[in-house]
Nucleic acid binder design. Sequence first.
DNA 1: CTCGTAGTACGACATCTGTCAAACTACGAT
DNA 2: ATCGTAGTTTGACAGATGTCGTACTACGAG
Lengths: 126, 126
Amino acid sequence: MTQKTSAAPEAPAAPDESGVLPEPAPKEIRLESVMHALADPCRLRIVTELAVQQHEMTCQAFGLPVSKSTSTHHFKVLREAGVIRQYRKGTARMSRLRRAELDGLFPGLLESVLNGALAQRARLGE
Amino acid sequence: MTQKTSAAPEAPAAPDESGVLPEPAPKEIRLESVMHALADPCRLRIVTELAVQQHEMTCQAFGLPVSKSTSTHHFKVLREAGVIRQYRKGTARMSRLRRAELDGLFPGLLESVLNGALAQRARLGE
DNA sequence: CTCGTAGTACGACATCTGTCAAACTACGAT
DNA sequence: ATCGTAGTTTGACAGATGTCGTACTACGAG
C-alpha cells in the first residue's frame, strides 16, 4: 500500500501524487525538532515570511542572504521537522506553513513564536 | 547565518549582591537563543519541571540522566539564554524560571511550549 | 581544621550544524 | 535542440554542541 521510493528509511507520510516532498506525519512531529528548526535566524525568517504572506512561496522569493545550497538545506530542515510542506510546481518548489497540524499538536506555539519574532524585530529595529 | 549565542564577555546585567549568577537583561534576551535553549530534551525537561514545581530547585533535584558537568552545562545554557535565574544558596544553586520576563518579551511562548511538552509526553507515553 | 556535598572549570572527543562552491537534474521557453 | 531558471546533491570545512572524566572551588557540619 505504502508506495515506498526507498529514499528515506521509513518516512511514514509522503503522499507523492501531487508532487509533495517527503514530510513527517503529524504523529511523528516532535516538539524538540520544531523548536530546533525555529531556533535558526534564517529559518525563523522563512517561517515568519510564510506567515505574513498567507499563500505558498517559492524558495527564492525570500531573498535569504545565503547560497542556493544553504537555502535548500534550511527548507529541508523545516520540512523534515514538520513545520512546512513543499511540493513541486514546474521548476519551482512551493512552500506552505503546516499551521493546522502544528496548532493541533502544539496549540498556540506557532502563534506565539511568530508574534515573538515580529515583536523582537520591531524592538531591535528591523 | 552563523547564529550567535553571545556568551557575553561583558554580560550587562549581573546583580551580584544576592548571589545571582550572570544573566542577560530582559532587553538582551533573544528569541533564537530561547528557542535553542528549549530545543534540547534535557533542558526542556528542566524547564517543564521548574514550571510544575512552582518554586526554585537545586540542580540535582531533577535527576537528569547525565553527568554533573553536563548538568552544569545545560543550566548554564538556560541561564545565559535568559530562561532561568540561578543564585547561590549555601553550597547549592537554586534555579527559577524567569516567567515574568519571558512573558513580557514573548507572550504565550513559554506557556505553549510547556503545554506542548506535556501534551507530547502524554501522547508518547511518558 | 577536616571532611563531605554541590557545583564549576578544563580539556578531550565525537557528532552535528551552517556554510559554500561546483556539478548535476528538472522543467519551461525560445 | 538549446538555453536559462530553480533547485538538489555532493564534498568540504570551520565552528558549535553534548557528553564525559578529572581536577578544582565553595560552603556547611562535625
